[in-house]
């Protein structure tokens, strides 16, 4: 069964179309990065998935059901939303104890979850004195309480220091690849998730821009080919259906043909190429290209 399924989801707030006909799925055992600039509609999508926001149309399902219909939601889905949702006067452990009680989980879970996220030492400290990074870890501990197989995390790297981000990457990979969980993690900073995710879904201005595996998006498929030649090769390339851009005299950026096709065409046309190389655009440039703005980088 598909762990997470978003189907034609739309949601407006007043005149603002926050999410516009978005569809994607997340399978068990994979980490999917949900990427887009701030305000792209990521949080609204995730909150719809968690039953906090009612979509105008479409569906957002976990394990094939609406979140609001789950009898034991913490056992199925672990969620990390913004890191501010704690009572400052309550200790970390008490925060988790309340969730544990309400969900009817074993009383040992709070301490185990705190141990798992490296917060055991701060268990009896009031959350008011926590750094943003500690709050993120506490939120993650809350998501782990019911030992679910689906994780939904909204910007979990916010406020983490480089060591914390490193730890988070490893932890998310461990959840997906070792325990078989489906992980959906949103971010507006590509670099944070680039080394973690298996699949990427990119959203901008409420609309889905691109989705695919990391390999598809970073590999040759999406990139252009850089061709160096002193001959007049552009007309032939265009005739073959390619999109050609002269970056500088003698250097062409070619889309629509791969290096082999370009080489074959050059051979046919008796054109001398001095360089043929795939522009290995990393995800970052794909991201910027697709979202059409530099926001969040």
């Amino acid at each position: 069964m598909t762990a997470i399924e978003i189907r034609n989801l739309s949601k407006s707030f007043g005149a603002v179309r926050a999410v516009d006909d978005v569809s994607f799925t997340v399978e068990a055992g994979t980490v999917t990065g949900y990427l887009g600039p701030n305000g792209a509609g990521k949080t609204t999508t995730l909150r719809s998935l968690l039953g906090l926001v009612t979509p105008d149309s479409g569906e957002a399902l976990v394990n094939g059901r609406r979140y609001a219909g789950l009898d034991h939601p913490l056992n199925e889905v672990g969620a990390v939303l913004e890191a501010t949702s704690f009572h400052p006067g309550r200790t970390a452990r008490d925060h988790l104890r309340i969730m544990t009680t309400a969900a009817g989980l074993p009383a040992s879970r709070p301490d185990e979850a705190l141990e798992q996220v490296g917060l055991a030492d701060a268990a009896r400290k009031r959350v008011g004195g926590f750094s943003l990074g500690m709050r993120q870890r506490l939120a993650l501990a809350g998501a782990l309480l019911g030992q679910p197989k689906i994780f939904i995390l909204d910007e979990p790297a916010n406020g983490l220091d480089p060591a914390g981000i490193q730890w988070l990457r490893g932890f998310l990979r461990h959840l997906a690849h070792d325990t078989g969980a489906a992980v959906l993690v949103s971010s507006h900073v590509l670099a944070e998730v680039e080394q973690t995710v298996d699949n990427v879904v990119i959203i901008a201005k409420g609309r889905l821009v691109r989705q695919g595996s990391l390999a598809e998006l970073t590999g040759n498929g999406g990139g252009a080919v850089r061709v160096k030649t002193k001959d007049d090769f552009a007309p032939a390339l265009r005739a073959a259906g390619a999109e050609v851009e002269e970056v500088e005299p003698g250097v062409l950026k070619v889309r629509g043909l791969d290096a082999e096709e370009i080489g074959r065409l050059a051979l046919d046309q008796r054109v001398l190429l001095t360089e043929v190389a795939h522009e290995r655009s990393d995800l970052q440039s794909v991201f910027l290209e697709l979202t059409g703005e530099g926001a969040g980088a």
Binding site: G51, L52, A68, G69, P73, L74, S85, A102, A103
Partner: peptide, 9 residues
């Protein structure tokens, strides 16, 4: 938020 996530009904 956490309350409604734990008890969506």
């Amino acid at each position: 938020t956490g309350t409604f996530l734990t008890t969506p009904k």
